[in-house]
Nucleic acid binder design. Structure first.
Lengths: 145, 145
DNA sequence: CTCCTATATTTTGAAATTCAAAGTATCCTA
DNA sequence: TAGGATACTTTGAATTTCAAAATATAGGAG
């Protein structure tokens, strides 16, 4: 494997994991009653267009049953609200509460800060090429799977 | 947030998660008696220089207690062997078995194939810049945390 | 209108995963 | 040789996961 491949692989395998555990540790230290997994669920809800249980579960790549138990806890903790569709009573929409938006704000800021620190010393040309390369990687996965 | 930041964030947040669930699904479909988490433990062992429990746990960013239960299962399933240090009997080294190496081989091939598909149509200049950028990202996390 | 099938979600049961804290064994040093 | 330090395991409690069964609603064929 050449260097580029090794680095990409390292990013895939280690760095991503690393970030998750750092974020999880931050949550615990600050006494937030959420795991990274739960933050992920909140994130998926905020990014899903019409966030029914099925659509949100699909975005998270977990079974709907798994999501149900996660949502049960998040509702109980006051981060999420459930709402049945008026027209199609099979459907359940999930919404973030204000409490959840506050957490998401901190989460987004952490990510933004992290990324800023990473790319702050890149020049314009590098930026353009990196953008193209990463878009390739991102699209590859979206299309292929 | 500019485009580059968005894409990096998307990679961090979604794509890596995506890959994990794909790999997990593959393992289940093929009837392999390992979760992605367990594969990760095997990977960490193979990458840790003198893989004691502490060092391996540190690389995995989990507590040693967590690793102990994971290793218990992996030993029982025949993927890992424990070995006490002759000189310092507090230390326990963990080793992969042949069975584990087979799994790791398939895992590595999946990653290599994935990465090949991603970067196959990049030119030399792009490759150099991508390498530099990704190395930055990778180093940033290693140094900062 | 009444079955029947499809869709959406929840419940259930079992196994994994995680952490913090307590427990055990060994090492090292004053 | 007593003591604290280090390495690991055990324990208890909570989360996370899946597959499969259960529930409820929708929509179409006749």
């Amino acid at each position: 494997m050449n260097e580029t491949k090794k680095v990409i692989n390292e990013l895939l395998v280690e760095v991503f994991h690393h970030i998750l555990s750092i974020e999880g540790q931050m949550l615990r230290e600050r006494g937030v009653d959420l795991s990274m997994n739960e933050v992920h669920v909140l994130e998926a809800i905020s990014k899903t267009k019409e966030p029914t249980m099925s659509k949100t579960a699909a975005n998270l790549r977990v079974t709907v049953g798994t999501l149900t138990t996660a949502i049960n806890r998040l509702v109980q903790k006051g981060y999420v609200e459930r709402n049945r569709d008026k027209d199609d009573k099979r459907k359940v929409y999930v919404y973030l509460t204000q409490k959840a938006y506050q957490i998401m704000k901190a989460h987004d800021e952490f990510h933004e800060e992290m990324i800023n620190a990473v790319i702050q010393d890149m020049n314009m040309e590098e930026d353009a090429i990196l953008l193209r390369s990463l878009t390739n990687i991102s699209n590859f996965f979206k299309e292929k799977y």
